Computed example of a mutant assay.
Amino acid sequence: MLNLPTLRQWRYLVALAEIRHFGKAAEACFVTQSTLSAGIQELETQLGAALVDRTKRKVVLTPLGEELAGRARELLREAEEMVLLARAAAAPLSGPLRLGVIPTISPFLLPRVLPALRRRFPDLRLFLREDLTARLVDQLQAGKLDLLLIALPYEGGALDTLELFDDEFMVACRSDHVLTKRQSVKLDDLADAPLLLLEDGHCLRDHALAACRLPPSPRRDGFAATSLHTLVQMVDSGLGVTLLPRLALDAGILRGTEVTTRPLANEGKAKAPARHIGLAWRRGTQRAKEFTLFGEALVAALKQPVSESQSKTA
């Protein structure tokens, strides 16, 4: 029988591969530098091959060390999922859950649903990371996140997804804008409008354009915002019109402004233009049932009256 390395030794190698510094890698593993160094040396002895080239200036992994560090990441991820799967069998959604959320969802949805989620799953330890979709997907695939709450569809990566609900787009403009004279706004009315959008990289921009069948580069007059709050202030200043999701409107993003909204005309469609809010996780994970349960609980919490979900505490 082979004398197999321990998970601790593989964790030392992965930390060293990611940080490239013995002292800082040791801190990340909560051990002394001598302990981590000895663990790497023992690993090399067991394998009969060099994994790290040690120099005074920097740490360089050998080609074999790089390959084994990549495989070790997958090994540690699988070992972690096995433990979490066992816990979930006894008590679903207990223990840590690392959730990534995009910034056009996080501040508008989470305050409404987190109190109810805490009441239903008191042993759930939720760790949140807010970032753009592409970076969240990278962190998910690297094993640094467990689950994503994003806008769908998203093309890229081996992901399984679960759609939760539609988030309707509304046209937002100043109360003195000509569009406020209409009950609803047709898509053609936006084709030549000074349409303000989030900067490139925000999926809300792409989803809004796709849902409204607008060209990839509509007239923008040189302006782009980094957040929905900034976008609202730009519209309030009379710089143009924009498209806002219902989630943000329900959360009161227009409060204190002269901005008002009008629905987009369906124009023969069964549904109004919208983005799809959903969950995404690594394909093949053993926690798919647990993540589905989380999605169902999130939708149930969202259906509670706003006053109820915000007034009660966990």
Rank of each mutant, 00 (worst) to 15 (best):
R77T: 08
I105K: 10
L51S: 10
L51A: 09
R73Y: 04
V113I: 15
A69I: 04
A88K: 00
A90W: 12
E66K: 09
V59I: 14
Q33I: 00
L97S: 05
R57T: 11
K56Q: 11
A50W: 03
G70Y: 10
E66N: 07
G48L: 07
L84D: 12
E42I: 01
V59L: 04
P63I: 04
L47P: 12
A49H: 12
K56R: 15
L51M: 13
L75W: 00
R54E: 06
G70F: 08
P92Y: 04
I105L: 15
E42M: 09
L43A: 09
L85T: 12
F30P: 03
E67Q: 15
R87M: 06
I105A: 09
P107M: 03
P103A: 06
L61D: 00
D53I: 11
V60W: 01
G100K: 06
L36S: 03
A49R: 15
A89H: 14
I105C: 10
P96Q: 08
A89I: 11
K58A: 14
T62C: 04
T104C: 13
A38V: 10
G48N: 06
K58D: 10
A88V: 04
R57F: 03
A90R: 14
K56D: 15
A86S: 13
G48I: 04
E80I: 02
T62N: 05
R73Q: 13
L114I: 14
A69S: 14
L64E: 11
T104V: 12
G95I: 05
L85I: 11
T32R: 12
E66D: 07
T35R: 11
V52S: 00
S94R: 08
G39K: 01
A72N: 11
P96C: 00
P107H: 08
A91L: 13
S94D: 10
T45S: 14
L61I: 03
V60E: 11
A50M: 14
E78M: 11
R87D: 09
K56Y: 11
L43D: 02
L47T: 10
L110R: 08
R87Y: 01
S106C: 11
S94W: 02
F108T: 07
M82N: 15
M82T: 12
E44M: 00
I40C: 07
A88C: 10
Q41A: 15
S37F: 01
L68T: 09
E66P: 00
E66Y: 00
V59W: 01
K58C: 08
S34A: 15
I40T: 05
R57A: 12
A50N: 15
V83A: 10
L43I: 09
L109Y: 02
P103D: 00
E81K: 11
G39A: 13
P111W: 04
Q41M: 09
